[in-house]
Simulated scan of single mutants.
Amino acid sequence: MAAAAPALPTFLRPRPRPPPPFPSSTPPLHRRRPPPSRLHPARPAVPLSPVSAVEKTKGAAAAADEVQLEGMPSEFYDEEWQANQRERTKEWHAYRQKEEAEEEAKSSEYREIGMRMKAYPQEEVCKARVLVSSFIRAGEDVEKVSQCFIWTLTNLNR
């Protein structure tokens, strides 16, 4: 009698064969055709006739006089309201530019402070940062305590 061969570890065993490919009647999923185009490939799209800029503006002005946009309030067509809106927009832009200038001034000031701090020894700068952060935290704590105190006073009076 022949001795049986020892069993092989799983990593040395031959792999099972993959399943047979799809039958030829059904294509695999990854080889689907793209959806058909609305335009027929043999028939090119009809190009539009060129329109001059003068004709565009004349047509747009006439169309604007005749047709009002749906859903737009009646004020939209009022010239005085439009002028008022443009004025408000100018004021808003001026305000925004002022705010941006203030932010830029603050950041440049912080940059200047940072540049000055480079002249000092690193240990002193670290101690100063710790001190400033403790001041900030103390202010936050004072604010929390004062809010709790005010809440307590308002609820005691009820």
Rank of each mutant, 00 (worst) to 15 (best):
P20G: 04
A105D: 15
E143F: 02
A5N: 03
A64I: 01
P41C: 03
V67F: 12
E99F: 14
Q122M: 11
E103R: 10
F149V: 05
R86D: 03
A83C: 14
D78E: 13
P16S: 14
P28W: 07
P18G: 09
D65L: 14
Y95S: 03
N84Y: 10
A64Q: 07
A138Q: 11
R31M: 10
A101P: 00
L12K: 12
P35N: 06
L48M: 02
S107P: 00
S108R: 07
L156V: 15
L131A: 13
A63L: 11
A7T: 11
T57F: 08
A60F: 12
P121V: 06
T154P: 01
R88F: 02
E87P: 00
A60S: 10
S25R: 00
K118W: 05
P73Y: 01
A138G: 11
Y110R: 04
P14T: 13
S108M: 09
L48F: 13
C148T: 08
Q85T: 04
A138P: 06
L8T: 02
K118G: 02
Q97W: 10
S37R: 15
V142L: 08
S25H: 04
G59C: 06
L29P: 13
A63Y: 07
M1V: 04
Y120M: 05
T154Y: 02
S108E: 09
A5K: 09
S24N: 05
C126L: 10
P28N: 06
L12Y: 07
S74Y: 01
S49P: 01
P36L: 15
K58V: 15
P9T: 03
E91V: 06
E140G: 08
R17A: 12
